[in-house]
Design a protein around this nucleic acid. Structure first.
Lengths: 187, 187
DNA sequence: CGTTTCGTTGAGTAGAATCAAGCCAAGTGG
DNA sequence: CCACTTGGCTTGATTCTACTCAACGAAACG
């Protein structure tokens, strides 16, 4: 989906990963959200799309049109409640990202992003994973945080040198000191 | 409402204005959203509140508890659909803010915020107002954009010197060159 | 009249962006 | 098999923006 398109379809993500982004006049991409399975994309109430939706990996979607939606809600009132719940979760996630992006230093932003990934990489909802693969490239991480890829790279090596994380290849992350990461995030 | 509270109530705003914010370990406030009349606050599906809600002006709210919500949805299925619509709008607004906060330069951020205010100050949904009162203090603007009050102040005087806007007192803004502002926002 | 709050302005500095190489792994083609 | 390319990542040197610290002006208030 591209910004400016007639907005005819919405979808829930079945497998894979998507990003929602906007692109400014100079071609700078801003990632506004990363969608995981069971997440929802599309603007149900806008005539044209505001943002771009791009697959990060091969993905499977369950598409439906807005007219589908309206008839389905009429037949199954519980559907609206379920979608409301999803939408509330997306909203909370967007605000979490806002919070992250507002951190003062680059180190705090990168540390916060790692903590967030550790949480979402865990199967349990209350614990964080202590090792995981970064779902985003350096370029995408930079775009999420509003930094450059060089700065992201430097912060990662900095975090490794200070012993808070260890890296396995370009994408593998092992958290060695989770509380320390959180301290950096909030400071 | 304060982050960490038991999350027992939600509300729609009738008159006034609210801000949703988070506060980090150093006491730095991040404004995550500004709520206007007809807007919704509260996290319907979280046991404890993640963020703070603070009134920007004297405000009137229509409060309801989460159990109220559940019985109301059971009796009036259309309610869920209406709340879904609101929630979608909040989500779009949060993403617009994300976009703004991700702009590279301070000038682009301030210019973008002014454009956004000009839009929401207009009574018509398709035109922007050409003069309006800033709804936020310098401190709140800085917090929304992730800047300091000094930087916001300097950017405003810069925009005035370059002829894009004129100021009337501390809060009054007159847009003299709206396309120019948009160019700055996307550049 | 002092005090407080809010906004503006200036000087100096820390930190991220920019510019520029260079490394490594994977792919391509002779 | 080897030269070459490509894309993603890292590192270094330099520049410049926005933060910090500090002073000052204006309006509101007791």
């Amino acid at each position: 989906m591209a910004a400016g398109d007639d907005n005819i379809a919405c979808a829930t993500l079945v497998t894979g990963a998507l990003k929602i982004s906007s692109i400014d006049a100079e071609g700078q991409e801003q990632i506004l959200s990363v969608i995981h399975p069971a997440g929802f994309v599309g603007e149900m109430f806008a005539p044209i799309a505001h943002h771009n939706v791009i697959a990060l990996t091969d993905s499977r979607l369950c598409l439906f049109t807005r007219s589908d939606y309206e008839s389905a809600v009429a037949r199954f009132p519980a559907l609206a409640a379920a979608l409301l719940r999803r939408s509330s979760e997306e909203l909370l996630e967007a605000r979490t990202l806002l919070d992250l992006k507002g951190r003062r230093s680059a180190k705090a932003k990168v540390a916060g992003l790692l903590s967030a990934f550790a949480k979402s990489a865990s199967t349990s909802s209350c614990h964080s994973a202590d090792s995981f693969m970064l779902p985003l490239s350096r370029s995408d991480m930079a775009s999420v945080l509003g930094l450059t890829i060089e700065t992201v790279s430097r912060q990662l090596t900095g975090l490794e040198k200070s012993g808070l994380i260890r890296r396995e290849g370009a994408r593998g992350i092992i958290i060695r000191n989770a509380p320390g990461l959180d301290d950096l995030t909030n400071g």
